[in-house]
Simulated scan of single mutants.
Amino acid sequence: MNRLKQLFEEKKGNILSIYYTAGYPNLNSTLDIAEALEKAGADFLEIGVPYSDPLADGPVIQKSSQTAIDNGMTVKLLFEQLKDLRKRVSIPVLLMGYVNPVLQYGVENFCASCAEVGVDGVIVPDLPMYEYEEMYKDCFEGHKLSNIFLITPTTSEARIRKIDELSNGFIYLLSTSSTTGKNLSVSNEIEDYFARIKGMNLKNPTMIGFGISDNKSFSKASEYANGAIVGSAFVKLMGEENYLEKIPAFISSMKGKEAMTV
């Protein structure tokens, strides 16, 4: 059982995942941020692989991605940085990126590098489901990597059932069909969507993302899923001075607790 599956076995609710961009704000900050997030109480991490055309991301993450590229971050360099990942971090870690850099690196090489450094799963929003199933599933599973699929309020039940069959980690529920960075506004329509997915009794755990920015939105999402993913709100924090020192208070505020000491 990989770390991701073990987490969902041991903790059923209020799971907090944090997304941040590799190589931002500084080229060599990736592992320092990961270590600080684990110490502060994050349950698992999603490290973004910077890409020049991040279609699903809003302006905050787009800007961080461009800054990381300007800093010199590449897929190859990221894997070099992650060689010491498991000496410093024990919680599950996923890589989130777009299919083009993965294909350029080579899917087999990418999966092998993930396994070598201790990455537990991958989120590739623009990888078509049929391509994954026909061409890459054996490679991912052979390296014990969970491939995380995304669903939106417009995803059909048939497709959701298919995704549930193909998944072996969790399913990522987008709170909206738009880009990242919008604050979660839980309208009746969105609440109906969350309730509909919860009522499907999927075999895989679910995590809600896009618009989770504070304890209120995190708590609301956790009513309908196993937890939630925070991205833009945390990436904004990474742009501030003394950002590492502010991580414990940020995580505690998301969870609605007093700041943990590190």
Score class of each variant (00 low, 15 high):
residue 137 K to S: 11
residue 207 M to W: 05
residue 214 D to Q: 06
residue 209 G to I: 04
residue 186 V to Y: 08
residue 164 D to Y: 09
residue 110 F to L: 07
residue 171 I to R: 04
residue 11 K to H: 05
residue 161 R to C: 04
residue 47 I to Q: 00
residue 107 V to N: 01
residue 181 G to Q: 08
residue 133 E to H: 11
residue 131 E to F: 06
residue 181 G to N: 02
residue 152 T to N: 03
residue 199 G to S: 11
residue 69 I to K: 06
residue 229 I to D: 04
residue 177 S to I: 11
residue 254 M to R: 03
residue 200 M to N: 08
residue 43 D to Q: 00
residue 202 L to H: 14
residue 2 N to Q: 02
residue 250 F to H: 06
residue 39 K to I: 04
residue 216 K to Q: 13
residue 12 K to D: 06
residue 253 S to N: 15
residue 178 S to H: 02
residue 208 I to N: 02
residue 106 G to R: 00
residue 11 K to M: 04
residue 204 N to A: 10
residue 185 S to V: 08
residue 238 M to N: 14
residue 135 M to N: 13
residue 178 S to A: 07
residue 196 R to F: 10
residue 67 T to C: 09
residue 38 E to K: 00
residue 131 E to D: 15
residue 223 E to F: 04
residue 235 V to Y: 03
residue 62 Q to R: 15
residue 233 A to R: 03
residue 108 E to M: 09
residue 256 G to S: 01
residue 132 Y to H: 12
residue 80 E to P: 07
residue 172 Y to M: 09
residue 246 K to Y: 14
residue 162 K to C: 00
residue 68 A to D: 09
residue 164 D to M: 06
residue 76 K to G: 11
residue 201 N to Y: 11
residue 169 G to W: 03
residue 24 Y to G: 03
residue 176 T to K: 00
residue 189 E to T: 09
residue 127 L to N: 01
residue 62 Q to D: 13
residue 164 D to R: 05
residue 108 E to H: 11
residue 17 S to P: 04
residue 60 V to R: 06
residue 168 N to A: 13
residue 77 L to E: 08
residue 175 S to I: 01
residue 195 A to D: 12
residue 36 A to L: 00
residue 55 L to H: 14
residue 13 G to R: 14
residue 132 Y to P: 07
residue 106 G to K: 03
residue 28 N to C: 10
residue 146 S to P: 06
residue 165 E to M: 12
residue 24 Y to A: 02
residue 132 Y to S: 11
residue 87 K to I: 07
residue 14 N to D: 12
residue 213 S to G: 09
residue 261 T to V: 13
residue 123 I to S: 00
residue 44 F to T: 00
residue 208 I to K: 03
residue 165 E to S: 12
residue 160 I to L: 12
residue 189 E to L: 01
residue 244 L to H: 05
residue 195 A to Q: 14
residue 131 E to S: 13
residue 183 N to I: 09
residue 185 S to E: 15
residue 239 G to I: 06
residue 153 P to I: 06
residue 235 V to Q: 10
residue 113 S to Q: 05
residue 187 S to M: 05
residue 105 Y to Q: 10
residue 233 A to K: 01
residue 143 H to C: 09
residue 186 V to E: 11
residue 44 F to R: 00
residue 193 Y to E: 14
residue 245 E to S: 13
residue 142 G to C: 08
residue 9 E to L: 13
residue 124 V to M: 08
residue 126 D to R: 04
residue 4 L to N: 03
residue 170 F to C: 12
residue 3 R to I: 02
residue 208 I to R: 02
residue 84 D to C: 07
residue 213 S to Q: 07
residue 228 A to K: 00
residue 67 T to S: 15
residue 173 L to C: 04
residue 117 V to S: 03
residue 251 I to R: 14
residue 129 M to Y: 13
residue 9 E to C: 11
residue 148 I to W: 07
residue 15 I to E: 08
residue 177 S to Q: 10
residue 91 I to G: 05
residue 159 R to S: 11
residue 259 A to L: 01
residue 4 L to I: 03
residue 120 D to M: 03
residue 257 K to V: 15
residue 115 A to V: 13
residue 138 D to N: 13
